[in-house]
Design a protein around this nucleic acid. Structure first.
Length: 382
DNA sequence: AATTCGGGGAG
DNA sequence: CTCCCAGAATT
């Protein structure tokens, strides 16, 4: 096993006969999982389906890596258009490596978790500079690259390089937790789960096994109302046999989201251009474009509302927007001003309305601009 | 071990 | 409304 390094403390030491029985069950379960995958796999843009694989088609590591980074905490449906856009703009990893970072941020805008885009660019640069434009073909080599952690290293290793790596994502966590009725709550249970996945992962077709487990979690072993009657592993599932599968995996309680408030200022120039500026490279929405505004704090500070104005103008309130982030909810008061002369004293710039859509604007900023200028992002304006 | 990172779709 | 999605980096 290439993924050792942690102690396996799952229950008591099994006898050798039990271990053999367990191993046989795991191997048989893997076979049934692969058989199910052959018949029920989803057709995804980055995936080499089993029939094509039999014709000798192999996955492009660049495609697998790009899709896996985009898929981190992100649904397949949300990723698809971005995957196609990136391959059109940058067909090879070396193209992405030599691209302008600002163009990459623009292309990523709307997908969220923007540190992924910054690390994506750094990773492409590292592959081009340190590896001759070829991705490392081991978990260790992959994990040393920016933006590639335990999951992505194992996934690329298994799917693109046919290595026997243990792939553990949110789907597999759910499948494994039910299969073995694991009472340990997440995230503490991850080492146990990874060891069980490693034991089950076959030497033959490890990439299809990983994708099959993820497809199973996405379509059969779902968070709510799992279709256990259709599951190829239902004969082995301890949660189905002894408890309620829907109650797995166990998870630590989550904390509530606080409310933060602030103000945003949308200035329109004489020709309709909007005043924009660039956010700091690190932190929330790091490196993305924004309209000027106050800091986002737990309660309203009237003085900040004055200081945060980019320049003196006849600012008029035009309503509020709300936006939900991962760990807080934001309520923004939006102000609008139509100015006759473009102020050029600050660090920002005036962006024509026609090219607003193509900017690196996160969703919350598009909401704020649309609140002030309802036709800003409508079709026909670009 | 906890926290910080977006956005959207399903139920 | 709640949950969670092919998680990683930082503290």
């Amino acid at each position: 096993m290439k993924d050792g390094g942690y102690s396996f403390k799952y229950r008591a030491q099994p006898t050798s006969r039990q271990m053999m029985q367990h191993t046989d069950n795991a191997a048989d379960a893997a076979r049934r999982l692969l058989s199910w995958y052959d018949r029920h796999h989803r057709d995804l843009p980055w995936r080499i389906s089993p029939p094509m694989a039999r014709d000798g088609v192999v996955a492009d590591p660049y495609h697998i890596w790009l899709s896996e980074v985009m898929l981190q905490q992100t649904t397949v449906q949300a990723v698809k258009p971005y995957f196609h856009k990136f391959l059109t703009l940058w067909p090879k990893v070396t193209d992405l490596a030599s691209a302008d970072t600002e163009e990459v941020m623009k292309a990523w805008a709307g997908l969220g978790y923007y540190a992924r885009a910054r690390n994506l660019k750094k990773c492409a640069e590292a592959v081009a500079r340190d590896h001759g434009g070829v991705f490392p073909d081991t978990e260790e080599g992959l994990k040393a690259l920016p933006g590639i952690g335990d999951y992505t290293a194992a996934a690329v290793s298994a799917i693109a390089f046919n290595r026997q790596s243990a792939v553990l994502d949110g789907n597999v966590e759910r499948v494994i937790s039910r299969l073995y009725a694991i009472e340990t709550p997440l995230p503490s249970a991850k080492p146990e789960m990874r060891a069980l996945v490693a034991r089950m992962t076959p030497a033959d077709r490890p990439g299809d096994f990983a994708q099959g487990m993820m497809d199973l979690g996405a379509t059969i072993c779902t968070p709510k109302r799992p279709a256990c009657a259709l599951c190829p592993l239902n004969a082995d599932c301890l949660a189905l046999k002894m408890a309620d599968p829907e109650t797995f995996p166990r998870k630590a309680a989550k904390k509530d989201k606080p409310l933060r408030v602030g103000a945003a200022f949308v200035a329109s120039g004489p020709d309709g251009a909007v005043y924009l500026r660039k956010r700091a490279e690190t932190g929330l929405l790091g490196g993305m474009t924004e309209v000027p505004g106050t800091a986002w704090t737990s309660r309203i500070d009237g003085d900040n509302t004055i200081e945060a104005q980019p320049f003196a103008a006849a600012w008029e309130p035009c309503g509020t927007i709300t936006h939900v982030f991962t760990h807080f909810e934001l309520r923004l008061s939006v102000y609008r001003a139509n100015v006759a002369i473009r102020d050029k004293s600050g660090n920002g710039w005036w962006e024509p309305l026609a090219s607003l859509e193509a900017q690196a604007l996160p969703t919350v900023m598009k909401k704020a601009i649309a609140q002030a200028i309802p036709h800003a992002f409508k079709a026909g304006t670009n």
